[in-house]
Nucleic acid binder design. Structure first.
Lengths: 229, 229
DNA sequence: ACATTACTGTGTCCGGCAGACACAGTTACT
DNA sequence: AGTAACTGTGTCTGCCGGACACAGTAATGT
């Protein structure tokens, strides 16, 4: 598994040449997931867009789980190159870059959750984030926890703002808003604070990313300045 | 669907009495999910622990999606009663309560993601969170964004610290750590900052929840004090 | 040159899943 | 008594991931 993710070739010897490659499989799978969602990625479907049958894929990949891991790390890519900046600006652009990545491949939000083996690209993202915090006086654990908080925020904002191709119940943002409005209209007495909060949040759409990011970075700044000064 | 979640009875008239109830179905499903993970919840499996067959369940619930929604809102429960406290302490205990809920039913992390219709209990949680922030000078949108940030953090911490019964690749925390250690040992030059960060984060386990929460609340406090003062 | 060995791709099969649909039995209203 | 509305059931379809045996192919050893 680690070998798959990190691209160690098994040093071929005898036997027929493989008809395809692991990356070709992953690229096809990524294209399907981008177009129709992660749930549309099945071994059948992937093999159908390659000159092989379903079972041939198992010569390249132990199972579906591993295929998803490989395609995820590949689609994620590494963090884009950015000029050196003070830690706060660096982390800010890092977060925005991460957000862009998730909006490019929304299914990454599904496939990169929970305990899993980390691939080179995912690790490169972490490396970049930690790098921004070196020299701030934070301990290693604090650095890791810090970028974890930011990642959590970015992920959840991306999750709520992105529209998934497949899988989900097919609700639009309007459906949710309307359903919520109806409920609050009939049960306003059960949710008084929420009702007034919704009323005074009319036009403030899609500010969630920057708002939360500003709070988290403010909190970090407080800690860092207290640590160095 | 909204009727299901909010428990509107369809006012029975003729025909045989139903052999079971919607809540009985949901409770069985919850028990299965608690014991064996959300993936173990199938219509077959649920019906198997009730005096009906699989297809009978479709008389109570339109499909699997709706069953998961109902069982999720039921398992989530409402927020526990807490004494009135200043906003910061109130939000802190709110976050801890939420975290406890997710550790009690880890599968809620899977079932309550993305766009979905909100049930009464989930809305009660939001209401409680927003209530803590009334009178702080924050706008309705800011209040909602604030509790969203906290929710994101709590969710992601719960996700990484909880061990799922089913579904996941079956990796233990040690497996991940060891795999990461091996990678960093062989490719240390590609991830220098991460390597040193890992080295100086030896014993600091499981502090992620409080650390991130403290940063977020610090950031909010900064905003609120600037807003009121 | 030839047999051996290791590898690749394929077809078939299995169990499990969500759900459509027709049908039989049950209850209440007319 | 008849009818209409409702519940539970059995059967069927089309997916899915994956096990396994088998045939073909290319490099190796003799």
């Amino acid at each position: 598994m680690t070998e798959l993710l990190w691209g160690k070739e098994p040093a071929r010897t005898r036997g027929p040449k493989p008809a395809i490659t692991l990356t070709a499989i992953a690229e096809v799978a990524i294209a399907i997931a981008d177009a129709e969602g992660l749930d549309a990625v099945s071994m059948q479907r992937v093999a159908g867009e390659l000159p092989v049958t379903k079972m041939a894929l198992y010569r390249y990949v132990p199972g579906k789980t591993e295929l998803v891991a490989v395609m995820s790390d590949l689609a994620m890519g590494g963090p884009p190159d950015r000029p050196d900046l003070p830690w706060r600006e660096a982390l800010h652009t890092w977060a925005i870059d991460l957000y862009d990545g998730f909006t490019r491949h929304p299914w990454l939000l599904q496939s990169t959750i929970g305990r899993r083996l980390l691939g080179p690209n995912e690790l490169a993202w972490i490396e970049r984030g930690v790098a921004a915090l070196t020299g701030t006086g934070l301990s290693g654990g604090e650095q890791l926890d810090s970028i974890l908080v930011i990642t959590s925020h970015v992920r959840n904002i991306a999750q709520q703002s992105t529209t998934f191709p497949g899988h989900t119940t097919g609700l639009t943002e309007e459906d949710m808003q309307q359903s919520l409005a109806e409920i609050l209209a009939t049960e306003a007495d059960r949710f008084p604070h929420l009702t007034t909060a919704m009323r005074t949040s009319a036009g403030s759409e899609n500010q969630g990313l920057e708002f939360g990011l500003a709070r988290i970075l403010d909190g970090l700044e407080l800690l860092i300045s207290g640590r160095t000064g």
